[in-house]
Amino acid sequence: MNVFRLTGDLSHLAAIIILLLKIWKSRSCAGISGKSQILFAIVFTTRYLDLLTSFISIYNTSMKVIYIGCAYATVYLIYMKFRATYDGNHDSFRVEFLVVPVGGLAVLVNHDFSFLEILWTFSIYLESVAILPQLFMISKTGEAETITTHYLFCLGLYRALYLLNWIWRFYFESFFDMIAIVAGVVQTVLYCDFFYLYITKVLKGKKLSLPA
């Protein structure tokens, strides 16, 4: 464990909690892409099946349980409890265009052709594009609530911190995982234009609105 990975995990946890609290407190999931949240629930489910097979640490196990629990709670709030506030018309990204190619790539490019490893690879590839429906929805509505931008900032920051973690682990532990690194770079690059808007607008107290 190193400071980049720990802050990365805490940033990820913060993002998940911010979103859950935003929906729960405001009793609304306006502006939130339910499709992205379903993809994240799939990412965690396919990545953390090793909860059943191997124990690494209390921290590792508890964080995985929290991530999976919050992901499904968020999906439940969006599609069940507060479904009246779900903006399905703007959440129109065709996720099959993500899941199918990612599934194919996971079968073709992986470290080991075993069930758990292919699922893990699938979850790594899927996570790198899982935010696209959310970013697409914001580009369609042309704006985002400030709390949603904080959620997205923490979520984008987490994988950026993981990139620093992999640099650290490469030098100090000669560990590297090319699949996770390449997918992590893609994932972080997808947030770049959002990061620019967040830093130039939201941090200056303005609302995030895109030129329609």
Binding site: D9, D50, S54, N60
Partner: peptide, 10 residues
């Protein structure tokens, strides 16, 4: 390359 069992990252 690390097998799944040693995937200690979240």
């Amino acid at each position: 390359m690390l097998s799944v069992a040693y995937k200690d990252e979240l």
